[in-house]
Amino acid sequence: MSDFTFTIDEIEIPAKEGQTIMEAADAAGVYIPRLCDHEGLRHQGGCRVCTVKAAGRSVSACTQPAEPGLAVENETPHINKLRRDLVEMLFHEGNHLCPICEASGNCELQAMAYRLDMTEPTRFPYLEPCRPVDASHPDIALDTNRCISCGRCIRASQDVDQKGVFGYVGRGIHRHVAANGPDLAHTDAEITDFAISDEVCPVGCIIRKRVGFVTPIGEREFDKGLIGRKISEKRNA
């Protein structure tokens, strides 16, 4: 039972007290693009890809509580352009070379770029940072060139696995995700951790060794259709 309703792009959405805009939207089958938010993890509001206009103000849908009668704008050309710029800047901040990445086709960053039509010639310089690869763990590798600092692995490890294998270090532009030890082999990380599972890392940073190409390129999750289609299908069903 819903406590109240509000609207997203003039579609009436039922919501319960305390639900965020995104939680209510997901339940109603309206997809709001997101990268740092993931079902089952605490909300962070970090990537801002889920930015919507609620009563005219830009807010992150994953952290903003729904309110009765609230008018939310989601899929407008203006908001999608802001989201596309954010995603494009993420591509420029790290080293996201899709043709050489084993996550290609399963990557949410790539899928978001598809969804948001990121095909214009770029206006930004590629920063091409030098970031380490940590292959010390027998079952897991970290290629931090691809990390977008969404922090999903941090929250999954802390809240679900009760471990704290990952954490943020540094400040400002230098802030990044790091393993909580000299390298991954010297942490409690195990291949069975939720934080290491396919669904947590949205990009190809956390790599499960020896399974990367079990599903060939062209037959992967976002080769089959746009990101968010599973949520939208709920509404169409």
Partner: peptide, 15 residues
């Protein structure tokens, strides 16, 4: 992709 962002040859840049 090579024209767009360097592609495979760009592996020599940062990796």
């Amino acid at each position: 992709q090579c024209a767009i962002m360097g592609g495979l040859p760009a592996m020599r840049n940062a990796i």
